[in-house]
Design a protein around this nucleic acid. Structure first.
Length: 679
DNA sequence: CTATTAGATGTTTTT
DNA sequence: CATCTAATAG
């Protein structure tokens, strides 16, 4: 506690609304915090205030959207609270999924789970779905059966929204409706199979946590673990997560949520801004605090963001303001095509660096991972270092999945999916032989594969691959009792390397990747822990795994808008802002989905502190990977209305600028003919 | 049965 | 680019 009349400096630094939120006493609290209004500071201050009020750190639960956010907040809160509560312990924090993981581990037996259950990532889940679909014989049924990844999307949406499959299909996947029955059957066997294998997918973690929290006996115990629950980015929770919170607070009232309904961008994950608007109904007598003073951006930048947000009249009315007058006008650039766009971005980035703006305080943002393909080439060509967040992820690379499969097998030989993957790495082994080998590994009555039965299984391995195979099995069988996780993983890598070498022409680069993984594993307790952590907190860029970059290294940040949420830079370059990308073509089916695209656009516009550049390439390529030059003629995003455009400094307006642009119709016809040559 | 090749095709966003 | 299909060769 602090002396009356002299609040600590960190509390004095807050404005009136922030202070009120940080020191709110008793009952549910909703903080509606616009972009850049000091949301993180306020939440950290609230945690610090709670600590200074004598709340035990372990009895505070802080749920955030990413693990990184949790770490950052807890650190800042502890730094703030240092004086008031010098010996504060550990605040319990993390994503919904990682906390769910801890809770489910704690109560595994009550849930009928083996103590060593595994957690599978989206890739594994998709593989498993594909496997059961194959067994069910739907492989050939219907020409365009949804792919594994799509099946998982459908499944996940059904579960997270707690909505009947038929409705999900009709609403979000109309092109898969004809396969409804086959999908339902596949999902049923998928659920069954996960049980058999002793694995949970990411959605299960939430489902199981909710089941625990709702249980008569265990529920109250979980609830009483925490005196206070704080939730960040509340606009992105889904119904399942709200259920969990309701159970956790059934008999307690201390819950604080922070969010901005205008930054809700995870509808595809069944999140809905409805929940933040509903909060006062779900948690009666909630106090509501609005933060509208923006500390991040200059007023010309903020003007653009406000103008876009005003296109949407739903939700809490709010208008951000700042006293940071002045600063350059945002720039709206119309490059001729995507190559010009890449050059324009590079030029501007380098020019800004000449003015001593580090690369690391600039970012390029885009809607989809592949929007930056050409830019990446250009950056490489010019020797501009960069890191990319979002888009293709490290864990999705084939060889990394191979290694993960081996790691899983080292702790759980029953993991069929991993067996299947590993066995097919052997030369001369395809799906059929892998299945036969797997069957021989199982004890005669069925059951799970066992390493001890390798001798019988080896008959099915082609002679040429036998040596590789026994090497692998040997390494797996070696009890890792005294070895550290790092050493164990290193050893498993070593045995995997020859297979990788034989499999992939570019094996050298792939094997080099393992070094990072081994380095990351050195700190881990054990392999199972390491793999679970990897699944729950995947490295968001390939550089993430390599650990903190050297301080003297400077690099440009490339990121999807989704991954950029909550971050800020001095300068932001938003590329590919053409209609079809903002909003994305496949997400314009309803008013609500267009509104979500607008919010995504808004999130991008609210990232910069001083400089905003928006690029609309006039001509863009349809197939990012195709060899043909199939292209479209784009017009600017529909969110860039005339009203919004007026707030920009417009560069290189296209010749064909007009209200209703007729795609591709040239101003005049240019004749090319060789007929004259033929007389 | 598996490997190899050629050809077609693909809706974005992430815990 | 990655993944899937079909057809052909080993």
């Amino acid at each position: 506690m602090f002396d009356a009349g002299s609040p600590p400096a960190w509390l004095q630094a807050l404005n009136a609304e922030q202070g009120a939120a940080a020191t709110h006493r008793g009952g549910p609290l909703l903080i509606l915090a616009g972009a850049g209004t000091g949301k993180t500071t306020t939440l950290c201050s609230r945690v610090a205030w709670l600590l200074s009020e004598g709340v035990t750190a372990e009895r505070i639960l802080l749920l955030t959207f990413t693990r990184r956010a949790a770490r950052e907040m807890i650190q800042r809160a502890r730094a703030l609270a240092e004086r008031a509560a010098p010996n504060a312990g550990r605040v319990v924090g993390g994503t919904f999924h990682s906390v769910a993981h801890r809770m489910v581990r704690l109560h595994a037996s009550s849930l009928g789970l083996a103590p060593g259950f595994g957690v599978i990532d989206a890739g594994d889940a998709a593989d498993l779905l594909d496997l059961v679909r194959g067994e069910r014989g739907h492989a050939a049924a219907g020409r365009r059966f949804p792919r594994a990844q799509t099946m998982l999307d459908i499944y996940s949406r059904t579960v997270n929204a707690q909505t009947p499959l038929a409705d999900v299909l009709a609403e979000s996947f109309p092109w898969c409706e004809e396969h409804r029955d086959a999908l339902a059957e596949t999902f049923r066997s998928y659920v069954e199979r996960k049980r058999e294998l002793g694995v949970l997918d990411l959605d299960d973690l939430l489902l199981y946590w909710r089941a625990l929290a709702g249980d008569e006996v265990i529920g109250p115990r979980l609830a009483n673990m925490f005196e206070h629950v704080l939730v960040d980015e509340y606009q992105d929770v889904n119904g399942l997560q709200v259920d969990i919170l309701r159970s956790l607070r059934a008999d307690r009232r201390d819950i604080t949520v922070v969010g901005d309904d205008f930054q809700a961008i995870y509808g595809f994950r069944s999140a809905s801004a409805r929940h933040i608007l509903d909060f006062p109904n779900v948690f009666p007598d909630a106090a509501v605090v609005k933060l509208e003073r923006n500390y991040r951006s200059t007023s010309p930048v903020l003007a653009v963001a406000n103008a876009v947000s005003e296109q949407d009249r739903l939700g809490y009315p709010k208008r951000l303001w700042t006293d940071r007058e002045g600063g350059p006008l945002p720039e709206l650039v119309f490059p001729r095509d995507e190559s010009d766009q890449a050059r324009d971005v590079c030029d501007r980035v380098l020019a800004a660096r000449e003015e001593s703006m580090e690369l690391r305080s600039q970012a390029v943002l885009f809607r989809a991972g592949h929007d930056s393909d050409l830019l990446e080439l250009e950056l490489t060509r010019r020797g501009i270092p960069f890191v990319k967040y979002g888009g293709l992820r490290y864990l999705e690379a084939a060889h990394v999945k191979d290694l993960i499969a081996v790691l899983r097998l080292a702790t759980n030989p029953a993991d069929e999916v991993s067996w299947f993957r590993l066995l097919q790495l052997l030369e001369g082994v395809g799906p059929v032989r892998a299945r036969r080998i797997l069957d021989s590994l199982r004890a005669s009555g069925g059951g799970s594969p066992e390493l001890g039965r390798w001798a019988e299984a080896a008959v099915h391995v082609p002679a040429g691959s036998l040596e590789h195979a026994t090497g692998v099995i040997g390494a797996l069988a070696e009890s890792g009792g005294e070895a550290t996780a790092g050493a164990r993983i290193e050893q498993l890598c070593e045995m995997l390397t020859p297979l990788i070498r034989a499999r992939y022409p570019d094996w050298a680069a792939r094997v080099a990747d393992y070094e990072q993984l081994i380095a990351a594993a050195r700190g881990a307790e054990d392999i199972r822990h390491f793999v679970s952590e990897l699944v729950l907190d995947p490295p968001s860029s390939s550089a993430d795994l390599a650990g903190p970059p050297h301080l003297d290294e400077d690099f440009l940040v490339l990121s999807t808008v989704h991954s950029a949420k909550g971050l800020e830079w001095d300068a932001v370059h938003l590329i590919a802002a053409y209609d079809g990308n903002f909003p994305a073509d496949m997400n314009t089916s309803s008013d609500e989905s267009i509104a979500e695209e607008r919010r995504l656009f808004y999130v991008a516009l609210t990232r910069p502190r001083r400089r905003l550049h928006v690029y609309v390439p006039f001509r863009y390529y349809h197939r990012p990977h195709g060899r043909d030059d199939g292209h479209g003629y784009g017009k600017a995003s529909r969110f860039l209305t005339e009203e919004v455009k007026r707030l920009f400094d417009v560069k290189h307006a296209p010749v064909t600028d007009g209200p209703a642009l007729d795609p591709g119709r040239p101003a005049r016809r240019i004749e090319v003919s060789v007929d004259a040559l033929f007389g």
